[in-house]
């Protein structure tokens, strides 16, 4: 495989508040490749959205990136740029032309006072050095590309005049305005109906094929991951507990959380009225992050005291990484004698 466009290494993002420190992202590693989709999956509070915001340098206060690297490989070669240490002015040249973001709630992410045309052309005028007329033509072209019907008419409408599905298409058009290499889509279909979701996922796949986009798809929905992702990072309380190719993650999950999560998903294939296996307890509040492996209070495969006291290190095998003592890393144990 070629070099990744974007590599995240040991990323730490924390929120320092009056009540304590929330380690929202607490050591996350992954790679994103051209033309491939990395699915980042996890439940609420796992840090998936904060990871996305950290990459773009738009973490809300009082949050801050406290450590780690976000390495972007420049187009046409050269040494990677670490976005985690880049000054704000330079970050502005990254957001849009290099990495763009699609939010979950298209209604909340648009201004209600400007037409969609105004909002799309803003980025084009800022970054691409086109004149007003050319920018408008480019915006119409973008709307057409994302499947907005009658783009030359729609461009003068306001966000509230559009349906949820159309708003999400416009949001994608806006993200693609400056031809980014990486698209981060944060729960892009969660607010949409299933039939509309299917349309938007189709669109993302299509755009990826045509433009070689690298996509980071953030979602809580394992069904969407199975459908869209080439590679998967499963997150729990700020950590990527397991990463690997999609087939491996679904067919041979190694982390007990991934296994339990996959078992507990309702599917249309199930026999009617069958009870699902559950994961005990609930996700701890970020202030009460359990010691040791954060998943141990809910884990059905816990090994014992080591899980309560030590954080499992990342264990790498071919293309895959897992953080669980079941697969090694027990402190003090000689290699080869571990379970």
């Amino acid at each position: 495989m070629a070099d990744p466009i974007l590599s995240v290494r040991d990323l730490h993002t924390q929120f320092h508040g009056r009540e304590g420190i929330v380690r929202a992202v607490d050591g996350v590693d992954f790679d994103v490749f051209e033309g491939r989709t990395l699915g980042v999956v996890g439940e609420s509070g796992c840090g998936k959205s904060v990871t996305a915001r950290s990459i773009l340098g738009i973490v809300d206060r009082p949050g801050r990136v406290m450590g780690g690297q976000i390495l972007l490989r420049p187009q046409g070669g050269g040494p990677p740029v670490d976005l985690a240490t880049l000054p704000q002015a330079a970050m502005r040249r990254i957001r849009g032309p290099e990495i763009a973001l699609v939010f979950q709630e298209p209604m909340a992410s648009f201004s209600q006072h400007y037409t969609i045309g105004n909002q799309i052309t803003e980025a084009i005028l800022l970054h691409m050095g086109l004149g007003k007329r050319a920018a408008r033509a480019r915006a119409i072209e973008l709307l057409d590309m994302v499947g907005v019907p009658q783009p030359d008419r729609r461009i003068d409408e306001y966000p509230f005049q559009l349906s949820g599905g159309l708003r999400q298409r416009v949001m994608i058009a806006m993200a693609l305005a400056c031809d980014p290499r990486v698209l981060i889509a944060d729960e892009p279909t969660t607010a949409l109906d299933v039939t509309t979701q299917a349309q938007i996922l189709d669109l993302l796949r299509d755009l990826q094929q045509k433009r070689g986009l690298a996509i980071i798809l953030i979602t809580h929905d394992m069904g969407v991951i199975a459908e869209m992702a080439h590679d998967v990072a499963v997150m729990y309380l700020g950590r990527a507990v397991e990463t690997g190719p999609v087939q491996d993650i679904f067919n041979r999950p190694r982390h007990p959380y991934t296994r339990a999560l996959l078992r507990s998903i309702p599917t249309v294939m199930a026999r009617p009225r069958t009870r699902l296996p559950t994961i005990e307890g609930s996700i701890p509040h970020p202030f009460d992050r359990p010691r040791g492996c954060a998943y141990h209070p809910r884990c059905s495969e816990k090994l014992g005291a080591v899980c309560e006291t030590h954080e499992p290190p990342p264990i790498d095998t071919e293309h895959r990484q897992v953080r669980c003592f079941l697969h090694g890393g027990i402190p003090g144990a000689p290699p080869g004698t571990q379970p």
Binding site: T195, A198, G223, A226, E227, A229, Q247
Partner: peptide
């Protein structure tokens, strides 16, 4: 039929025959 076909299934590579409805509700 379309609703069932659009429901995401947690099986990679299972969507070859998806029906994507056109237009909106």
């Amino acid at each position: 039929e379309a609703l069932l076909s659009a429901a995401p299934t947690p099986v990679p590579g299972a969507i070859s025959s998806r029906i994507v409805l056109e237009r909106e509700i």
